[in-house]
Write a protein that binds this DNA or RNA. Structure first.
Lengths: 342, 342
DNA sequence: TAGGTACACGAAAACGGTTTCGTGTTAATA
DNA sequence: TATTAACACGAAACCGTTTTCGTGTACCTA
């Protein structure tokens, strides 16, 4: 086992000082041609690579960014992650991922774990529980230490920091408008329980579209399901007992499940009933019929978030400058497929 | 902005030495009750947390593990990742994820980036290109430095290290056997191009099952598609022109696409034609009809891989002991749903 | 020949911890 | 009272870098 070689080893072997080796490897003008060549050749021969940890300690820069997401199996979050990873990697940063699992405690623990020197900044989406509790002290802690933070998707007004979100409300509005323009009148909304910020925004877009286009809001056409619902009776009963000609779902899982209920009832999609979902993921693309869906452009969000974070990390700003925050809105787009008429 | 406090600050403030502070915070017997209480109270008041980087440098232990996967958006890899993250986190480790994007070069770069002190060990699945090129020098490099490595799913016989795989061949065998037992005679195989190790294993299971059960192997019933195929003509034509009563697909995307082709042709699933896929992911669960699928238990694989890695990291072994490697086989199980008759 | 100036390099501090070993003070023992 | 042991703490080395500052040598100039 060939152990890692250090500056000290090279220095001893070549009978020079550590400083000389360090400078020689950085091609410093201070060192003579001969010495540099000798040292560089030796370093190459023994495959010298500087120790990242030592450099981090010295520079107080880890070149790591911490990403905390509620759930990594969720397609949307993975696409965001991919965007982050891609940009960060290109900039020489590594990404440490922690999963909060929608739990407040885990979120806190993970943040504290990473905040003690392991990372240069955070990118995160709040856990459902955190949004529900409305407790953001752990976030403030971290920010007070001067660690940059970018929130994405699951954000909170109470936290002032850089943010990347999509225009959920407008996207929902436009989706419903589309349905209305297609002549639909009895448009249902399938959403989650209300503490999830994004669902709430989408719901508001839905209501607004109805109102502005002369359709009465009918609470009877709104179904609120638990976030991770497994049993289907509730949604099936909903469809069985109502006369509906279009549906907006706040995610694609709800959408494909509900399409099934509609089909079971004998309805044809999109002739009798149209469906639009959110999160243009793998389910939307492969559903039968293919699902028209609001694309949230997770890759883009991740990329923008990473860019904002790294900009802040690498810029030397005064405290005041650092405390001016931006919110970037990523435009959601409607990807039309077979579940709506064109 | 309240900057992070260090041992030095505490020492200065309380007029003791740094060593005393360090010991007091570790509750060392060496320090008097009074002093310890004073120091601990002060540390708590100012929310002292030791700097991870400094500890890493001192201990030559980062408590980070590096995970390199070909693609994080792929459902199977995310479940493996979740298993890794969960176990690692419980053991106090953080996970640095890099995506090789199926590229050999990225895989090499990522490994080298992490191997210089950033992590204590690797968990990885080989990129398609790496398997194709059969070049594993970067892996050997890392292993020679004494960095523990666990390969999962995409492994290679040429590399001797700890491994976690599923019994792909047997799983495919059993799936096909199941179809045969259900009276199916004309069983097709939809697979990828052959350099992907796992697809090959599954194909072998398919062939073996046919042979051992008296069914002739018909190469005409085997379709090899590019790994990320987008256009569907080829697969659609395949179904249109053949008489098939069952299909084994090496992943769930192929399966749902092919189910569509069959339905388009007017066939009923599972009455006229059965389908079994691999990767029991979100598509299998929500397909219409729900897809019978071979579950690879990614969570379990990840957990086992993390456990093997951390065991090796934390055990103090002689070089010879460290060089005895294990291969753990995770049993794939067939999850029966609507696409096969029961 | 004395003084100045590049030049090439080394010593040492610093980053923030851990840990070994030494030492001054006090109390217990012979 | 002299010796010793326990106690409580500090000095310093160390992990592997970077970087500032100092210095010896050689050469050039007046």
């Amino acid at each position: 086992m060939r152990r890692k070689i250090t500056l000290k080893h090279i220095a001893r072997e070549l009978d020079v000082s550590i400083s000389t080796v360090s400078k020689a490897l950085k091609n410093s003008e201070e060192i003579s041609r001969d010495t540099k060549e000798k040292i560089q050749a030796f370093a190459k021969l023994y495959n010298y690579k500087p120790n990242n940890i030592a450099i981090s300690l010295k520079n107080k820069r880890t070149k790591n960014i911490g990403v905390i997401v509620p759930d990594i199996v969720h397609h949307f979050f993975t696409t965001v992650f991919r965007g982050i990873e891609k940009y960060a990697n290109a900039k020489g940063y590594n990404v440490i991922v922690c999963v909060s699992d929608e739990s407040f405690d885990k979120e806190v623990i993970n943040m504290e774990m990473l905040a003690n020197g392991s990372i240069d900044g955070f990118i995160m989406a709040l856990s459902a529980e955190t949004q529900f509790k409305n407790d953001f002290n752990h976030i403030r802690e971290v920010m007070e230490q001067g660690i940059p933070l970018v929130l994405f998707d699951r954000v909170a007004d109470e936290i002032s920091c850089d943010k990347v979100v999509i225009n959920d409300k407008e996207a929902a509005y436009r989706a419903v408008k589309k349905l209305i323009d297609n002549g639909r009148k009895k448009i249902a909304l399938i959403t989650t329980e209300s503490y999830l910020n994004v669902s709430e925004k989408r719901a508001r877009g839905y209501f607004l579209a109805l109102e502005e286009n002369g359709l009465a809001v009918d609470e009877n056409l709104v179904l609120r399901l638990p976030y991770q619902f497994e049993e289907e009776q509730e949604s099936e009963a909903f469809f069985a007992s109502r006369d509906i000609d279009a549906v907006l779902c706040v995610n694609e899982i709800f959408a494909v499940r509900c399409m099934k209920h509609a089909q079971k009832k004998g309805l044809h999609i999109p002739e009798d009933i149209s469906f639009i979902g959110f999160t243009d993921g793998i389910l939307s693309r492969f559903a039968n019929p293919r699902l028209t869906s609001v694309a949230q452009h997770g890759d883009k969000m991740g990329e923008v978030a990473a860019q904002m974070l790294i900009d802040k990390i690498e810029s030397e700003m005064t405290d005041e400058e650092a405390e001016t925050y931006r919110t970037v809105i990523i435009e959601a787009t409607l990807v039309e497929r077979e579940s709506t008429v064109n």
